[in-house]
């Protein structure tokens, strides 16, 4: 018997188009646009099919303007799709039923949802009423999140007086107080320092592990994606470019590992050990980057260590970052990959 999979998010042929008008630059352009306007319709999201199971944590990646945020807005009911179907937690989000709103949460790294003129605690109390959270559950959840994120002293400070990292912690707490079934995190670590990024990442990881909620994450930091998600959905120009496990994504460009070595002296450009692995030299020929087939990595690595005066030796930490960069520069690779048998 097949296991029954219950999808938290389901879209079919989802499309969102935006209409805008072309304006020539300068004052004359503005005057002309008063009388005649040429409209352009752009599909921000096109023919998008997606299924996300309950409890999954999925990364939604793509360059700026690819349509990630538009998708998030459609999932949460902020904007209405132009065509196609979308179902989140069993609801059509754009109907904005109150029952639906109680099941979802969204955190936007670039936009504060809490009230700037109020201390965080006032906002939380307001949300407690809006989401009808029983006082005991409210206190328990707040205390728990406070223990992990350590925001106790800040609860009575006005939001506008907080640092970006502090504000993001508050936004996260606010979004989780009502224990949503699905959480949309739109660049939750943007603009944060390394420590704050790591804290937020750990918090999201632990929260997901403990509560088994469905999480959809967008981020330009591949470290977020690598640390949090097993599955990755790539979006390019509003269309799905890739959907699958991260391991598979890492291998889109081939089954090679990038090895970086630094020698105490300049390395011979024609060194026979390196020549077959597309060497790229830097640092006055003392550092070289090699593309080595996965299955040969340990063998070649050992030989290099024996033959060269190596002072530093490392394999790349975030292979998906390289894959993303290459794909953004040359999206055709994906088309080739898809057409391959």
């Amino acid at each position: 018997m097949c296991p029954i999979s219950i999808n938290m998010i389901e879209t079919k042929k989802l499309r969102k188009s935006f209409k805008s008008f072309k304006k020539e630059p300068g004052v004359m352009g503005s005057v002309k646009s008063l009388f005649h306007r040429e409209y352009i319709t752009k599909n921000a999201v096109e023919d998008f099919d997606l299924s996300i199971e309950t409890g999954e944590m999925v990364a939604l990646l793509g360059p700026n303007g690819a349509g990630k945020t538009t998708l998030m807005k459609m999932f949460t009911g902020i904007i209405v799709p132009s065509d196609g179907e979308v179902l989140v937690a069993g609801h059509k989000p754009f109907l904005r039923e109150k029952q639906f709103r109680k099941k979802v949460a969204i955190v936007m790294g670039q936009k504060s949802q809490l009230w700037w003129d109020l201390p965080a605690m006032d906002s939380f109390l307001l949300l407690q009423k809006y989401y009808e959270i029983p006082p005991k559950a409210f206190k328990k959840r707040l205390d728990l999140m406070n223990d992990i994120l350590r925001v106790g002293d800040l609860l009575h400070v006005h939001m506008r007086k907080m640092s970006l990292g502090e504000r993001m912690k508050m936004e996260l707490i606010a979004s989780l107080l009502h224990a949503p079934e699905v959480i949309f995190l739109d660049e939750p670590t943007i603009g944060l320092d390394v420590m704050a990024q790591e804290n937020i990442r750990k918090f999201i990881h632990d929260y997901h592990a403990e509560n088994k909620v469905t999480v959809v994450l967008t981020s330009h930091y591949m470290a977020d994606v690598q640390a949090l998600c097993k599955r990755l959905v790539l979006i390019f120009n509003g269309m799905k470019g890739f959907d699958g496990p991260i391991e598979k994504f890492e291998k889109i460009l081939g089954h090679e590992k990038i090895l970086s070595i630094t020698s105490s002296e300049a390395i011979d450009l024609d060194h026979p050990l390196l020549a077959n692995y597309s060497p790229t030299f830097s640092n006055k020929f003392r550092t070289v980057e090699l593309k080595i087939p996965e299955d040969q990595l340990s063998e070649i690595g050992a030989q290099i260590l024996q033959q060269l005066p190596i002072i530093d030796f490392s394999t790349e930490k975030l292979p998906i970052e390289r894959v993303m960069k290459t794909l953004v520069e040359c999206p055709d690779i994906l088309l080739k990959d898809r057409s391959a048998p």
Binding site: K73, T76, G77, I78, R96, K98, R101, K102, V104, A105, I106, K111, Q113, L127, K129, Y130, Y131, E132
Partner: peptide, 13 residues
């Protein structure tokens, strides 16, 4: 400024 988004998400319109 797009602040209305919050009220489309919170169950208080």
């Amino acid at each position: 400024l797009g602040k209305i988004s919050s009220y489309l998400i919170y169950p208080f319109n």
